[in-house]
Design a binder for these strands. Structure first.
Lengths: 223, 223
DNA sequence: GTCTTCAATGACTAGAATGCGCATAGTTGT
DNA sequence: ACAACTATGCGCATTCTAGTCATTGAAGAC
C-alpha cells in the first residue's frame, strides 16, 4: 500500500512517516504543495495525507486539483484545532476524512485502515470470504480453519481475487495486477494458476468459491 | 436520501433530526439499540448515524451486526470526547467516519455530504428498467429480484439495449456495438439473439420489455 | 368499407461449427 | 526439488447458419 504525505512541518512529517514505515506501508514524504500535487497526479497512490496549511499551494487547492483529475484516491486532511470552517470546506472539496493536530498516532493509523479498507470492500486486516481467510500480514491462508500452503504466484492471485470479491475479473485485469505486464493472448498461465488454486481451495468442498464467467473471466464469490 | 439515527439522548437525537429534516433528508430516529439494529437490517438506508454509548445494545454491536449482514451502508458514529479507543475500535469494526460530541451541526452536515457522495460514486453502474436490473460490475442480471443467467453475447446485447432504453435500435447499430463489425444483411444472428433474450427475460411475464419496431429494429421500453 | 391475397418481415428451431476453458504433461529456470 | 510457465488435446457451452413457420400490413377485388 502506497501513501503520499504532504506536510511542510518537517517534525510532523517525519513522525508520520516513521509510524507508517513501521506498519510497512510504502511512504513518500513531500514538504512542498506544488510538488506534492504533481506527485499525486503522476503516481498511483492508495492514500493521500495532506496538511491544509502549506506554503506554496494550499491543501485545498491540492484537493481540488486531484479531484479535478478524476482521481478517486482517498484523501485525509490534517488541520489545526481552530480551523473548523477549513475542514468543512475540505470535506466538501472531496476529502474523505480529516484529523486535527495534535493527534494520537493510533488514531491516525485507525483512520488510515478505515480509508484503505473502504477502497476495496474487505474486512479489516484479514480478508475473509465464507470460511476462506487470508491474512496479508502473515501471508497465511486458511479454509475452514485448515491451513493452506500457496506459492508466491498462487498467493498473489488469491489476494487479488479476494480484494475484489463478487466482481468479474477479466484476464487482462488479472494479468496487470498479478503479473504486472500487458496481457499476452497466447498464454494460458492465468488459467493454469486458477486451476492450481481450485485444487487447493475448492477441490473436495461442496461450496465452490472460484467461479468462471465464460467469455469474461473469473469471480470469487460465496454463493 | 434516507438516514437512520440511533441515539438515546432525546435532546441530541431531536437536534440532529431537526437539522437533517431542514436539509430535506428522510430521517428515522430510534432511541433503542436493539430496535435500531432491526431497523437498519430491514430498511434500506443510505446512511446510519449511531451513538456508541447506548443502553440496550452498544453501538459497536450494532456496527458488527450490520456489517455481518453484508450491508455496506456508510456508518457515522458519535462518541464522547474522551472515548478515543472506542472510536478506534469503531473504525476498525467497519464504521466509515466518526464525530465527537459536542459537534457543530455544520460539521455533521459536511460529513454526511461526504459520505453520501462517496456511496454514489462507488456504484455508478446498475442499469434498471422496470423490475429488470443489470449490474455491469458483477455482470449480474435480475428481473423481479430473480437471477437470470446470460451468455456473453446475450449479456452484451442486453447491456446495449439497456443503455439506450426507449430508443429504436436498428440492426446495423446493434451489429456495430455488440458484434463490432459491419452489418451483413445475409445473417439473422441478431434476430436469433433477441429471441434468446426474450425467452429469458420476457417469456411468461405480463409486462414485455423487448419490443420489435417492424421495418426498423428493436427497442427496450417499460411500457 | 371489408375481405382476400400475398409478399415482406420477423419468430422460432435444430443442428453444425467454433472456440473457450480445463486438465495434464512437458519444459525451463532457480 | 520446486515454482513458473508452455504446449496440447479434449469436451462442451456458446455462437451461428440455415431453414421453416408465423405475423404483419398494403394492394386489389368486390
Amino acid at each position: 500500500m502506497r501513501i503520499l504525505v504532504i506536510e511542510d512541518e518537517t517534525k510532523v512529517g517525519c513522525f508520520i512517516k516513521r509510524a507508517l514505515d513501521e506498519e510497512s506501508y510504502a511512504v513518500d514524504l513531500c514538504e512542498d504543495g506544488a510538488k506534492g500535487l504533481q506527485m499525486a497526479l503522476n503516481t498511483n497512490y492508495d492514500l493521500l495525507i495532506v496538511d491544509l496549511m502549506l506554503p506554496s499551494l494550499s491543501g485545498l487547492e491540492i484537493l481540488k486539483g486531484v479531484r479535478q483529475a478524476r482521481i478517486q484516491t482517498p484523501i485525509l486532511i490534517l488541520t489545526a484545532q481552530s480551523q473548523v470552517d477549513q475542514r468543512v470546506k475540505g470535506l466538501d472539496a472531496g476529502a474523505d476524512d480529516y484529523l486535527t493536530k495534535p493527534f494520537a498516532i493510533d488514531e491516525l493509523l485507525a483512520r488510515i485502515r478505515a480509508l484503505l479498507r473502504r477502497g476495496s470492500t474487505e474486512s479489516p486486516g484479514v480478508l475473509q470470504i465464507d470460511d476462506l481467510a487470508l491474512n496479508p500480514a502473515t501471508r497465511e491462508v486458511t479454509r475452514g480453519g485448515q491451513r493452506i500452503e500457496l506459492t508466491l504466484k498462487e498467493y498473489a492471485l488469491l489476494e487479488y481475487l479476494m480484494r475484489h470479491t463478487g466482481r468479474v475479473l477479466t484476464r487482462p485485469m488479472i494479468s496487470e495486477h498479478v503479473w504486472n505486464q500487458d496481457f499476452d493472448t497466447f498464454t494460458n498461465v492465468i488459467d493454469v494458476y486458477v486451476n492450481y488454486l481450485r485444487n487447493k481451495i475448492d477441490r473436495g468442498r461442496s461450496k465452490k468459491l472460484i467461479h468462471t464467467i465464460r467469455g469474461s473471466g473469473y469471480m470469487l464469490k460465496a454463493d
